[in-house]
Amino acid sequence: MIKIENLKASIDDKDILKGINLEIPAGEVHVIMGRNGSGKSTLANVIAGNETYEVDGGNITMETTDITEMSIENRALEGIFLCFQYPVAIPGVSMAYFLRSALNAHRKYQGKEEMDALEFLNKAKAILSELGLDDSFLKRSINDGFSGGEKKKSEILQLLTINPKLAVLDETDSGLDVDALRTVAKGVNKFKNENNSVLIITHYQRLLDYIKPDVVHLMIDGKIVKTGDMSLVEKVEKDGYSWLEK
């Protein structure tokens, strides 16, 4: 699905990513863990095309398309979806208007007809119900006045509405209580299938109790230094990261 080769990126002349190599085939869930400042969120943002970061080398290929130089919106239209660690609040733009605009941008890109308001509402309400959210959620401004849990559920609502090819979850589990965590995990599990991929960035095992990863990567100082299975997560929970530096 996505192939990242020797990716290097910096911000304000400070090197963050120092040669990332990562390939996530369709149908797989990958996890990246690492210390604070190791470059996990930078990787998520660079995949999404955040222009704050400078790409200094390497390639990102989505299926067969090189997206390294692609605009933010075109990457999204190619199938990349970043679940934000800190979703921004945008007062004055309703969730319904925003979601329908985003969905129809994707449909237009895919050569499909735009979804009319009624069809969209039916689709959105069905997803809201699964996430335990009230229909009035759609009338609220984007993330404005949302609790931490609501913000993350809003991200999952967007994920399920847009239905991208690759979901990058940037610490989506941070700040969630157990019930909200289960709801988020339920949403991600509903999303994933053999035709799409998920990249989870996290510090903790708890989300992975609900979403079983196929591959686990450990990141230190801008590089993936170890790749393995779920046993790596258990080792990190037990021993931290210092053993990787020996």
């Binding site: 999404a48 095309g49 955040n50 222009e51 704050t52 605009s71 933010i72 919106e73 999204a76 239209l77 979806f81 970043l82 934000f84 979703p87 921004v88 945008i90 925003f98 605009s101 985003a102 941008a105 994707h106 890109y109 984007i142 967007q158 847009i162």
Partner: peptide, 11 residues
């Protein structure tokens, strides 16, 4: 702007 563009909405 980044948030909206990351959902496929053009600049």
């Amino acid at each position: 702007i980044f948030y909206l563009r990351a959902r496929g909405i053009d600049q």
